Amino acid sequence: MTTAALTAEPRALTTEPRARLADLVAAEWIKLWSLRSTTGTLLLTALAVLGLNVGTAWDQVRYWGEHAPADRADFVADGMALLSAFTGNGATVLMIALGAFGAVAVTGEYGTGLIRTTFVAVPARGSVMAAKALVLAAVTSVFGVLLAAVSFWLTQAQFARYDAAVMLDHPGALRLLLASALLAPVSALAGMAVGALLRHGASAVTATTLLLLVAPVFLSTRRYWTALLGNATPYRAWTTLAERPDVLAHQPYPGTPGGAWLTLACWAAGSVVVTVLAVRRRDQ
């Protein structure tokens, strides 16, 4: 045997296999569910959102008998019960909680120093963050779908006693449920992107809230460019998909359903890209 052959063999034995994406996803899954705050956060968020939505429906049916027959008939004919299936207050709480959830999913590792160990074990930082984003998107998507479905069922059960509930085949019902469900992963991924940029828990949570909910308040709907920017935010996109068409028609520059779906998709995809690129040129 030659000297080259003898030196090549030990080198081959010490070469470690590259981490597969499936392994990284499994590791991030364990990390996420090993935190007690994960279950607690999701549970409290669900209770808060359901409480707001169901409470709105209950408040409407509580005085049902006091309304005139003509008003009750118009309420049923217009499908007004759908507005309580997922309210604006519920959407706001969902975005705040899931945005913070996504931010902490990143900043928690920076706070404990675990991120250094992770990057030493897996130098491909972009792959680590992609796996983290994939796990977060999967968990929050399932959470969003379940929350929207349960909210729809509980709220319409309130109106069913008076034959005022709407079904899933009612115009706009499925669109509202899907848009509400997508708020969870979109908010979580946006929070993750902010967390990857700032790497500090309190700052990331605050910045995420400002980005998702406070910024749209200052974007006027009465001027073209501010309305255009406002319609490109997740909350305004959800509002476009949740509102009745006749209400949107009275706005100077209303959003469109197609543009709203595109906005939610771009925020989710853009957040993942920012998360992956944010760790490429950092010291840790």
Results as ranks from 00 to 15, higher is better:
residue 50 L to Q: 06
residue 247 V to H: 05
residue 137 A to T: 12
residue 120 V to W: 14
residue 154 L to C: 14
residue 188 A to E: 13
residue 68 A to G: 09
residue 68 A to R: 08
residue 87 T to Q: 00
residue 61 V to Q: 06
residue 118 T to E: 11
residue 28 E to S: 15
residue 209 T to P: 12
residue 37 S to C: 07
residue 186 V to N: 10
residue 180 S to H: 07
residue 161 R to G: 15
residue 238 W to S: 04
residue 69 P to K: 01
residue 253 Y to M: 00
residue 102 G to D: 08
residue 90 G to W: 08
residue 84 S to Y: 03
residue 110 Y to P: 00
residue 169 D to A: 01
residue 230 G to F: 12
residue 281 R to P: 04
residue 35 L to M: 04
residue 38 T to G: 09
residue 196 A to E: 11
residue 25 V to N: 05
residue 26 A to W: 11
residue 158 Q to M: 10
residue 27 A to T: 05
residue 120 V to M: 15
residue 210 L to V: 15
residue 109 E to G: 01
residue 35 L to P: 02
residue 176 L to W: 01
residue 98 L to N: 06
residue 162 Y to V: 05
residue 255 G to N: 03
residue 80 M to N: 14
residue 68 A to V: 13
residue 130 A to E: 00
residue 88 G to C: 09
residue 24 L to S: 05
residue 17 P to D: 06
residue 231 N to T: 01
residue 201 G to P: 11
residue 284 Q to S: 14
residue 178 L to N: 06
residue 39 T to S: 15
residue 27 A to W: 07
residue 220 S to I: 07
residue 80 M to R: 13
residue 184 A to T: 12
residue 257 P to K: 05
residue 138 A to N: 09
residue 259 G to Y: 08
residue 246 D to G: 04
residue 91 A to Q: 02
residue 149 A to M: 14
residue 1 M to D: 03
residue 62 R to V: 00
residue 64 W to K: 02
residue 242 A to W: 07
residue 194 V to G: 04
residue 44 L to C: 14
residue 264 L to I: 14
residue 173 A to E: 01
residue 13 L to T: 12
residue 216 P to N: 13
residue 71 D to F: 11
residue 69 P to A: 04
residue 199 R to M: 11
residue 20 R to Q: 14
residue 99 G to E: 13
